[in-house]
Write a protein that binds this DNA or RNA. Structure first.
Lengths: 114, 114
DNA sequence: CAGTATCCCACTGGATACTG
DNA sequence: CAGTATCCAGTGGGATACTG
């Protein structure tokens, strides 16, 4: 699925606005906080669900799948019973960590909690 | 309107996840790109609409109003005929510019356009 | 444990027509 | 020019029940 916007034909190339591409990846109510929770360590499905109060399994699955599609998250399945699945950041996901940190710091520094 | 999530009573205080607060502000299909377009200069309503192909007046208005509510954008109305309205970043909005830049650079460096 | 499979609903975005 | 005012449609999020 292509979620690009702002397609502008430039010769054979398509020029896409960079910040919009980023927007497309982190759009989704839980994406950022999921990445944040994976930034320090690998986590299992249930663990993530516990960390994200009020998220349902279905939604958590969908958000993780989309992050996987966008190569931000890696899903490692251990063939055991009971099943064990571990989520972690890919190199691309890791390269995004500084931005997550900036967001956290910006928020703490500039936003009064309302 | 309070859009905070993850409310956790801590004494009299409410503890809210910082990255989630940021998420709440930049959620919305056009928020980031609007901030981006205001990061270098003040812009008028129609100017913004031209810069954001395919956005309708109604939506642009709504997104701008929400950014105003969150103190990210300032709206300056000139009492003239025909009307002139200029949008610019508030100090809070300006403090967010480095993050926007990181996003743009991250995208250009790490995302192949797909 | 880590998911699917459904169904549902609210909200957000989008289109269009009208206005001070 | 810079909006409102409506109305509509799609989608994304949420709840619940079931499963390998």
């Amino acid at each position: 699925m292509s979620r690009s916007r702002f397609g502008e034909p430039v010769g054979e190339q398509i020029e896409v606005c960079p910040v919009t591409q980023t927007q497309d990846i982190i759009a989704g109510k839980w994406k950022i906080i999921i990445l944040w929770n994976l930034s320090t360590q690998t986590r299992r499905f249930n663990e993530l669900q516990r960390l994200l109060p009020n998220i349902s399994k279905g939604i958590l699955t969908r958000q993780l799948r989309e992050l996987e599609e966008d190569q931000m998250v890696h899903r490692e399945v251990y063939k055991e019973v009971p099943p064990k699945v571990e989520y972690s950041l890919t190199p691309l996901g890791q390269s995004f960590i500084p931005i997550l940190q900036s967001m956290g710091e910006w928020s703490k520094k500039n936003l009064v909690s309302k």
